[in-house]
Simulated assay, not measured.
Amino acid sequence: MLSELLDRLERLDHLIRHKSTGTPNQLAVRLNISERTLYGFLSEMRELGAPIKYSRSKQTYYYGTKGQFQLRFYEN
């Protein structure tokens, strides 16, 4: 269950970085979650420092500054 959550958050980060999320409804469908859950994920990511914004004209979420959200341990 935790790995499924991490996979969704990593996919969400990927889509945000590539500015290819679509509308909130479309994004929730892509991630196989409810819009309410999506808004919860976005809120948590923002609280952890992710500068997530939404462009109404392009209909996508994006990061206000260059970067990415990392959720796993990576050995150096």
Results as ranks from 00 to 15, higher is better:
residue 23 T to A: 08
residue 3 S to N: 15
residue 56 R to N: 12
residue 48 L to R: 14
residue 72 R to L: 09
residue 36 R to I: 07
residue 73 F to A: 11
residue 70 Q to S: 12
residue 54 Y to D: 03
residue 57 S to T: 15
residue 39 Y to E: 04
residue 11 R to W: 00
residue 59 Q to I: 04
residue 45 M to K: 02
residue 13 D to H: 06
residue 52 I to C: 05
residue 17 R to V: 08
residue 13 D to P: 01
residue 20 S to E: 13
residue 52 I to F: 01
residue 19 K to Q: 14
residue 76 N to H: 09
residue 72 R to I: 07
residue 68 Q to C: 07
residue 33 I to L: 03
residue 60 T to S: 06
residue 12 L to K: 02
residue 49 G to A: 11
residue 53 K to Q: 13
residue 35 E to D: 08
residue 19 K to A: 13
residue 5 L to R: 15
residue 56 R to T: 09
residue 73 F to S: 13
residue 40 G to S: 13
residue 41 F to A: 02
residue 9 L to S: 05
residue 8 R to I: 10
residue 23 T to F: 05
residue 63 Y to V: 02
residue 45 M to D: 02
residue 1 M to S: 14
residue 59 Q to G: 02
residue 37 T to P: 00
residue 67 G to R: 15
residue 17 R to N: 09
residue 75 E to H: 13
residue 55 S to M: 10
residue 31 L to Y: 03
residue 19 K to L: 04
residue 58 K to D: 03
residue 50 A to K: 06
residue 34 S to M: 05
residue 59 Q to H: 10
residue 30 R to F: 00
residue 24 P to K: 08
residue 76 N to D: 11
residue 6 L to Q: 15
residue 35 E to P: 04
residue 26 Q to F: 00
residue 49 G to S: 07
residue 47 E to T: 13
residue 3 S to C: 07
residue 6 L to Y: 15
residue 42 L to F: 07
residue 32 N to H: 12
residue 57 S to Y: 09
residue 50 A to M: 10
residue 35 E to M: 08
residue 30 R to M: 03
residue 41 F to I: 04
residue 11 R to Q: 12
residue 1 M to D: 09
residue 29 V to T: 12
residue 66 K to G: 08
residue 26 Q to I: 08
residue 20 S to N: 14
residue 45 M to N: 07
residue 65 T to F: 07
residue 36 R to W: 00
residue 30 R to A: 11
residue 37 T to V: 11
residue 11 R to Y: 02
residue 54 Y to P: 01
residue 61 Y to L: 04
residue 61 Y to R: 02
residue 69 F to R: 04
residue 58 K to A: 12
residue 10 E to S: 11
residue 48 L to T: 08
residue 30 R to T: 09
residue 32 N to C: 05
residue 18 H to Y: 10
residue 44 E to Q: 15
residue 34 S to V: 01
residue 2 L to A: 12
residue 76 N to M: 08
residue 12 L to G: 03
residue 18 H to E: 05
residue 37 T to D: 00
residue 27 L to F: 04
residue 55 S to P: 03
residue 65 T to P: 01
residue 14 H to W: 08
residue 63 Y to P: 02
residue 30 R to P: 01
residue 36 R to L: 01
residue 54 Y to E: 01
residue 42 L to I: 15
residue 32 N to S: 12
residue 28 A to L: 03
residue 56 R to E: 05
residue 10 E to R: 13
residue 58 K to Y: 00
residue 61 Y to D: 02
residue 64 G to Y: 04
residue 10 E to T: 07
residue 73 F to E: 09
residue 33 I to F: 00
residue 71 L to Q: 05
residue 10 E to W: 06
residue 32 N to I: 00
residue 66 K to F: 07
residue 20 S to T: 14
